[in-house]
């Protein structure tokens, strides 16, 4: 079965995402944003956006391991590197960045963690790929590509340089 949408290469998806965010910036949809990436893939995308938007403050990194909603069934996931958010988030516009938006659970966990650092003014969500299968009322403000996959398919993003993306069947993996 061939799904309807071919996947854009990661570099093209990043270009489109940047273009969308710059347009939003020109329309004044956010002010002086703080870019925060979700480990691991989201940090790679956030790093690209951080450079493209010329942000002066350091990139924030969130590791949502301690906020996941599957501890009861899966236990603690191995943690590669801790969260690192050195800038005060109070009253700020935050662009939260992930590689793939699927169920929405990761983004929910990330927002819960963000609020433990302070009270942001706005949180906007930027993802490289938004796919079907959402389980929560969460969708991306900006996406490099919105794509429908087959029922057993996933998007795997590899990086950091160069970033590549491909669809894989979860039956195979």
């Amino acid at each position: 079965m061939t799904p309807p949408d071919p996947l854009l290469p990661a570099n093209e998806a990043i270009d489109r995402l940047e273009t969308e965010i710059r347009a939003a910036q020109r329309r004044g949809e956010f002010v002086d944003p703080l870019i925060v990436g979700i480990h691991t893939g989201g940090v790679w995308v956030a790093d690209a956006l951080h450079r493209a938007l010329g942000c002066s403050e350091p990139l924030g990194r969130l590791n949502i391991t301690f906020y996941r909603d599957d501890f009861h069934t899966l236990g603690l996931h191995p943690q590669v590197s801790p969260s690192d958010l050195s800038v005060d988030v109070d009253g700020r516009d935050i662009i939260l960045v992930d590689d793939v938006l699927f169920t929405g659970r990761t983004v929910r966990a990330a927002m819960n963690e963000l609020f433990d650092y302070g009270r942001p003014r706005r949180i906007r969500l930027a993802v490289l790929y938004q796919r079907d299968g959402g389980e929560l009322p969460i969708c991306a403000d900006w996406a490099g590509q919105r794509v429908t996959l087959g029922p057993d398919e996933q998007i795997h993003v590899d990086g950091p340089a160069p970033m590549t993306a491909h669809r894989v069947s979860s039956k195979e993996s």
Partner: peptide, 10 residues
């Protein structure tokens, strides 16, 4: 320790 008996993926 409280992750035990829960099919940890590690």
């Amino acid at each position: 320790c409280m992750s035990a008996n829960r099919g940890d993926q590690a």
